[in-house]
Design a protein around this nucleic acid. Structure first.
Length: 183
DNA sequence: GGAACGATCTGC
DNA sequence: CAGATCGTTCCC
């Protein structure tokens, strides 16, 4: 498995989001490692009213405006964490929200964190809980070797025809079809 | 200084 | 389908 190349993250958020489907995320949190394949994402860019970066740089979204390949993590509804991969050139507030993964390795760890229930990792909040991603991971470099979170290409290509649809949970730009998932 | 509002999830 | 729950943002 090769670490994902940072230069592959430079480009329009929509294109990079499609490219990130089927890539592999490896998270080493509180002593446990979970590996998972990304199967659903959403693109956000700074010209997009639904994006946190739309109103400019703030303390919360500062990571979005930094170099690509870093994780932007924020707290949603005061309860759940959501994780994005920062994309686009350094200085642009573009990111790809991770919405769902399939667990490859570490299912026991995921069950311990999520409890004995179905629907372990299909949703941005559930995904973060399952992988152990929290606010402390905001800003970590996923293209750097040896970090707590790594993004990998294991040779599985992205789907040629992903399911495309409107993004979820928004009140603005709800018609923009920037949600992509594995068929 | 304060109020309103979430890129959500769960359980009733 | 409503409640949880709190940081961020924006407006007074």
């Amino acid at each position: 498995m090769r670490l994902f190349d940072r230069t592959e993250l430079i480009g329009p958020a929509e294109e990079v989001a499609r490219r990130l489907l089927h890539t592999v995320l490896r998270v080493d949190a509180d002593g446990s490692v979970v590996t998972a394949r990304i199967v659903e994402v959403e693109a956000y860019d700074q010209d997009d009213p639904a994006s946190h970066s739309f109103r400019g740089r703030t303390k919360r979204n500062a990571t979005m405006f930094g170099p690509p390949g870093h994780l932007y993590v924020y707290l949603s509804y005061g309860l759940h964490h959501c994780a994005n991969v920062v994309v686009g050139p350094d200085g642009r507030g573009d990111a790809v929200l991770l919405r769902a993964v399939d667990v490859i390795d570490g299912l026991d760890v995921v069950r311990r964190r999520r409890g004995e229930r179905r629907d372990l990792t299909n949703g941005p909040g559930k995904l973060c809980q399952a992988l152990g991603i929290e606010l402390s991971h905001d800003g970590v470099d996923v293209c750097a070797p040896g970090g707590p979170v790594g993004l990998f290409d294991d040779g599985t290509p992205p789907p040629t025809t992903p399911i495309v649809g409107p993004r979820v949970g928004l009140t603005k730009a709800t018609e923009t079809p920037w949600r992509f998932s594995s068929p």
